[in-house]
């Protein structure tokens, strides 16, 4: 597998996490390409150990956390959420907007922790490793994030939009 094959196979997976981080499809693409661009020079070295995806993921999350508010200060969900392939019904778009809005209320570090823990299904230790922080920080960030998300209408009543 070369770099292009990797991007073709795993790009969409990375993009989904990036969308949860940014709440905007264009910023998500920007984040994914930036992370891939930072990781690409290390492809030959890292890919042989089979850990290139983890390398890109770590790059993507740390890039997201380090990126300044100025650059992404309009960090709000937009009307144009992820394009749907053939079934972009209004209900799904509204649901995505609600989730993006719920995540948008979190500080960037908490948001990264939530995506790693509950979307990527990483353990606390793995999450700490990706973000370069302690397990204690992951625990406290998770706790604060969950407390905030519990009060979010879209998440407090998850069945609201069930079809």
């Amino acid at each position: 597998m070369d770099f292009d094959d990797f991007v073709a196979a795993r790009g969409a997976v990375l993009w989904r996490s990036a969308w949860l981080l940014t709440g905007d499809r264009h910023r998500a693409e920007d984040l994914v390409q930036t992370a891939l661009g930072k990781a690409w020079p290390h492809w030959a070295r890292v890919s042989t150990s089979g850990s290139f995806e983890a390398y890109v993921r770590k790059t993507m999350f740390t890039t997201y956390v380090a990126w300044y508010r100025r650059r992404w200060k309009a960090e709000v969900p937009t009307e144009h959420l992820p394009e749907q392939s053939g079934h972009d019904d209004a209900e799904q778009v509204a649901y995505q907007r609600d989730i993006a809005a719920a995540l948008a209320q979190l500080p960037r570090g908490q948001r990264a922790v939530v995506v790693l823990r509950y979307f990527e299904d990483l353990t606390e230790a793995q999450t700490a490793e990706v973000l370069g922080c302690s397990v204690g920080t992951v625990k406290s960030q998770t706790s604060r994030a969950l407390a905030a998300l519990r009060s979010s209408p879209a998440l407090a009543n998850p069945d609201k939009d069930e079809r």
Partner: peptide
């Protein structure tokens, strides 16, 4: 558990971006 479900459900579809690897190379 419902948070996990919600995050997955919200990200069902990712756009097909054929120039993604080219963009990454250009950035690098």
């Amino acid at each position: 558990d419902s948070l996990r479900d919600a995050l997955r459900r919200a990200t069902q579809a990712a756009p097909d971006e054929p120039t993604r690897s080219e963009g990454a190379r250009a950035y690098a």
